[in-house]
């Protein structure tokens, strides 16, 4: 943090993060992504653009996936957050993560928070997505490694395994 002196408006907010209730001090000007990464040390949530374009800062807030660089931490007070660390709810990979693993759905993994949360969001709404549906659903995320082909295949595999 680089506080601008003791005058910087600040407060304490309450959050539930991956099932754990906690409170954390924040400055009013802090974005949620920075609080998640720097104060809560959930550094699986990444930062790429701070502009809403890349999706690597994706978390779930109160059951909805959002880009956490586009919201002030103060606005999330009282919220229930799942970060990529809490994605599977345990130590094991969940079925979507497993499909990404099996299909080589990532290389460096930087884009995974966005890709995995978007994939889960899609499969909850549409258990049998077409390729076009999958491409549409992940279109808010940028991957610089894979060329997307294996990501689309991973989501498709996860969907097939769920329905078969």
């Amino acid at each position: 943090m680089d506080p601008i002196g003791s005058a910087a408006p600040a407060r304490t907010i309450a959050l539930r993060v991956n099932g754990v209730e906690l409170t954390t001090p924040i400055e009013d000007r802090e974005l949620l992504v920075d609080v998640v990464r720097k104060r809560l040390r959930q550094t699986g949530t990444h930062v790429g653009c701070y502009n809403g374009d890349c999706g690597v800062c994706t978390i779930s807030l109160n059951g909805k996936i959002i880009k956490s660089c586009l919201i002030l931490a103060a606005s999330a007070d009282g919220g229930d957050i799942t970060t990529i660390e809490g994605f599977s709810g345990g130590e094991e990979l969940d079925d979507i993560q497993q499909a990404f693993w099996d299909e080589d759905g990532f290389q460096c993994g930087f884009c995974l928070p966005g890709m995995l949360f978007a994939a889960r969001d899609l499969l909850e709404r549409n258990p049998e997505p077409s390729e076009a549906d999958i491409r549409q659903a992940i279109s808010g995320n940028i991957c610089r490694c894979t060329g997307y082909v294996n990501i689309v295949r991973s989501v498709h595999t996860a969907a097939q395994r769920r329905t078969s």
Partner: peptide, 11 residues
């Protein structure tokens, strides 16, 4: 609207 549901859930 582009940006995915992660954008549409905020904007």
């Amino acid at each position: 609207i582009t940006g995915g549901n992660q954008l549409r859930n905020l904007a």
